[in-house]
Amino acid sequence: MDLFIAIFTGTIIAATPLIFAALGELVVEKSGVLNLGIEGMMLMGAAFAFWAIVAGLPMPVAILAGALAGAAASLLFGVLALTFLTNQYAAGLALAIFGSGVSAFLGRNFGSAPIDALKKIYIPYLSDIPVIGPMLFRFDPMVYFAIIMFFVISWFLYRTKGGLVLRTIGESPETAHAIGYPVIRIRYLAVLFGGLMAGLAGAYLSVAYTPLWVENMTAGKGWISLALVVFATWRPLRVLLGAWLFGGMTILQLQGQALGIAVPSELLSALPYLATIVVLVIISQNRQMLALHFPASLAKPFRPAT
């Protein structure tokens, strides 16, 4: 039972950065923009949050610093993709490389000492319930915040006018422009939001999940988040489920390594990447489902006619 609880809570925690990053990217893609630079924004978030802690700033400020760093990084992409109408693939890649460089540069003096991680909260009374208490009510606040963000984003996208406008822009920016919506401005906001969320994801990695600084510590989690959005066929609930699936995969292979299964640890570590490929292949078979929720203008530059 203890092992089960450990795997369950580990899964939820490992999924948290993926939930942040993938939900953020979902909003960006729903507006018709493809930002491949999540990995770079996450690394920026991780580095700035860690930097704030090293500088002696309190935890909430550090997390905010991470989020803002991600947003600032996303602005670079936004200017290129939205104002300068560049190829979004190339702009996103540039951001991924740039972010990894900036974070490594910042992190050169961080040392390898761990910091005091974000504290877990034991929710009064609820956390004392046998089994369910330790499973659901003993996480750090960011875990709950990620779940809250899931509800907020689902509600925004499908239950508000703002969400409808955002999705319209993703489907047909020409139409939205003709009706009078500021397509470029709204896309900027979406990109900034995606950056904020990727920054949060990175901050979570460096101040709560690991909590120490390792160069390129995201280890592909930004790219996996991108895959999650495709896997989820652009629907929030599936992003959540997908993130838990991958979180579970990460924890299971870690448990496998800890139990000393007679498979080399490197090969176990490769499992999440392999699973990403397998899942992508399976989901790609269902073209109809992909087409149904795919933002039709994704990655196509839009220039309002004057």
Partner: peptide
């Protein structure tokens, strides 16, 4: 040496912007 990657990113940023 991470400066190398920063320069790589900046170079690509400017290249894409210059195209515009």
């Amino acid at each position: 040496a991470a400066l190398t990657r920063i320069f790589q990113g900046i170079l690509l940023f400017f290249l894409l912007a210059a195209d515009f």
